[in-house]
């Protein structure tokens, strides 16, 4: 495993196989919890934590898990780690915990977690697996964050509302000033669908443009003797 492989794993989680806008997995929390950045990031980070830890654990244990019972064992791992995160949040971030509510325990049923264990951690060494879990989780977090930002900004005209639940003393930002009438639909569930739809469309558009560009440029850098790093993926 060289550096390039790690970079590929990260790129895969963030862009190519992004759980939120490419695989469209884990929609339940994605749509329900993204009413503000704070909610979105909090749930996202909880997911990252669970994914990284469960990928690590599954990868470490992969040689001891009989093939026939791998799914229950994976679920067990995820459930245990989610419970740990759930209890910890309940204890130390109680008001945020009340807002996120059922969605923390529901990380167990977020199919992206199990999917990455089954597809990646069960076949790869621990370091790469942890990275994969974290990258996928961060990919999901990115989507959650952008969604949360969009919905909060358009729906409420604010950013970081509820930040005091995480960082006591911090304040939300009124982006459009107090007169902004708001656009409540975006805070309500339908807005989640609109925003996600726009995100998916935007990502597809960017990807299509990227591919079109790759096609119009002759694939010269593929020649083995051409070491220019120009073929690096655009960020």
């Amino acid at each position: 495993m060289d550096l390039r492989a790690y970079r590929d794993i990260a790129w895969n989680g963030w862009w190519k196989q992004n759980p939120g806008v490419v695989q469209i997995l884990g929609m339940c929390p994605t749509l329900a919890i993204t009413t503000s950045i704070v909610n979105a990031v909090s749930l996202g980070l909880a997911t990252v934590l669970v994914m990284a830890m469960s990928n690590l654990a599954s990868s470490l244990l992969r040689n001891f898990i009989p093939y026939e019972i791998r799914i229950p064992v994976f679920i067990l791992i995820i459930a245990a780690l989610t419970t740990v995160v759930d209890l910890a949040m309940n204890a130390y971030l109680h008001s945020l915990y009340l807002v996120l509510g059922i969605f923390i325990p529901l990380i167990v049923t977020n199919c992206i977690v199990l999917a990455r264990i089954e597809a990646f951690a069960a076949k790869n060494e621990p370091l790469a697996s942890t990275l994969d879990g974290a990258a996928m989780g961060l990919g999901a977090t990115m989507v959650l964050t952008v969604l949360g930002a969009m919905r909060e900004l358009i729906g409420n005209g604010t950013l970081f509302s509820g930040i005091e639940m995480v960082i006591p003393g911090a304040h939300e930002i009124q982006v459009f000033g107090g007169d902004y009438p708001g656009f409540l639909t975006f805070i309500l569930p339908p807005g989640a669908f609109f925003a996600l739809g726009c995100l998916i469309a935007g990502r597809n558009w960017l990807e299509a443009r990227r591919q079109a560009r790759a096609r119009s440029n002759p694939p010269a850098p593929q020649a083995p003797s051409a070491p220019e790093p120009t073929s690096a993926e655009p960020a």
């Binding site: 009438p181 708001g182 656009f183 409540l184 639909t185 975006f186 309500l188 339908p190």
Partner: peptide, 8 residues
């Protein structure tokens, strides 16, 4: 519908 939900 968008509007009645947003500005009831």
């Amino acid at each position: 519908c968008l509007m009645i939900v947003a500005y009831p």
